[in-house]
């Protein structure tokens, strides 16, 4: 049974990001996997090997599209040629929902290829929600917007990030892809309590979750997706699952990618928390009580060239 009206796919369970180093393993061994999340942009091509591989994956697996370049928060209008290509891909994959980020990244038709944070203003929320509606109406597929990790805040902001997220999704009447790792990263970088964030997002709109690893630097945390999920993120995930119900969940691992089996095993750890959520629903509370958010100063590390590829 769906946990909410934006979460009709609780049976999807745990998914993995489809990444090039795993293609051969997946096509040859056909491992079991609840579903694959693809980065839409990798397949918005006109031909060749990427689409050939995708078609073979589609014969065997359920695929959900995740994008990194719709830039709902950019002041620019959506690019029509991009949307037309995306619509063709939506038809090809029959993705049950489509996600992209609550961020901006392009201006005047130039692209940063990054997921840049929004100023949390009412004007930006209104504009962003209109773009989400426009894209959904054009693509004819439900949309979930994902919270990004951020390293900066703006003077112009008029509300918290979770209030802004709520404002946008209510105005757009769309779903949320709740990235629990991003909440943790931003909480550390901006000094808020991630449990406040989780408690205040509209739980009935969460249609998917992301979990991932991050990297701690001396003065901030970067969302690098090159590690296993860290313990505080699993704790947040447990709390999020308790609040939102069992939700399709995806582990993101985009850099220093280990073997398919290793990534899969890491993702399947989420089942423990999903079982907890099911248990809680039956009456008992299978969850640890809300843990104290650690506020110890970050540990110094050095690794300068780490760059997130998609978040």
């Amino acid at each position: 049974m769906p946990a909410n009206r934006f979460n009709a796919f609780t049976d999807y369970g745990i998914g993995l990001g489809l990444r090039v180093p795993h293609y051969a393993h997946i096509l040859e061994r056909k491992p079991t996997c609840g579903w694959f999340e693809i980065i839409s942009e990798n397949f918005l091509v006109d031909g060749g090997r990427p689409l050939h591989v995708l078609d073979r994956i589609l014969e065997q697996y359920r695929v959900v599209q995740h994008g990194v370049s719709l830039y709902f928060g950019s002041a620019d209008k959506p690019d029509r040629a991009h949307l037309r290509k995306l619509k063709a891909l939506v038809k090809r994959t029959r993705t049950p929902w489509l996600s992209d980020h609550l961020c901006w990244g392009s201006v005047d038709g130039t692209y940063t290829h990054d997921l840049l944070p929004m100023p949390y203003t009412f004007a930006a929320a209104k504009h962003t929600a209109e773009k989400i509606r426009h894209v959904r109406d054009f693509l004819e597929v439900p949309i979930c917007v994902e919270n990004v990790s951020s390293y900066a805040e703006f003077h112009a902001s008029e509300m918290t990030e979770w209030e802004f997220l709520g404002e946008v999704v209510e105005r757009a009447d769309c779903g949320i892809l709740l990235d629990v790792n991003n909440i943790y990263v931003s909480a550390q970088n901006h000094g808020f309590d991630p449990y406040d964030y989780l408690d205040h997002v509209p739980h009935d709109r969460v249609g998917q979750m992301h979990i991932a690893g991050h990297t701690r630097f001396e003065k901030y945390i970067l969302d690098t997706h090159d590690h296993p999920v860290l313990d505080p993120v699993w704790k947040l995930y447990a709390h999020a699952t308790k609040l939102c119900g069992v939700t399709a969940t995806l582990l993101e691992w985009d850099d220093k990618i280990p073997s398919f089996d290793e990534v899969h095993a890491e993702a399947l750890k989420a089942n423990e928390f999903i079982a907890g959520a099911r248990e809680a629903k039956k009456g008992g509370d299978g969850f640890p009580s809300r843990p104290e958010f650690p506020r110890a100063p970050p540990q110094p590390r050095t690794a300068r060239r780490a760059v997130p590829t998609s978040r």
């Binding site: 901006w104 130039t110 203003t121 004007a123 930006a124 504009h127």
Partner: peptide, 17 residues
């Protein structure tokens, strides 16, 4: 000082870009 419109949003995005 306050962002009231999409044009204000665009101005900030241009500056940052």
């Amino acid at each position: 000082r306050r962002q009231r419109t999409t044009a204000d949003l665009r101005a900030m995005q241009r500056l940052m870009a």
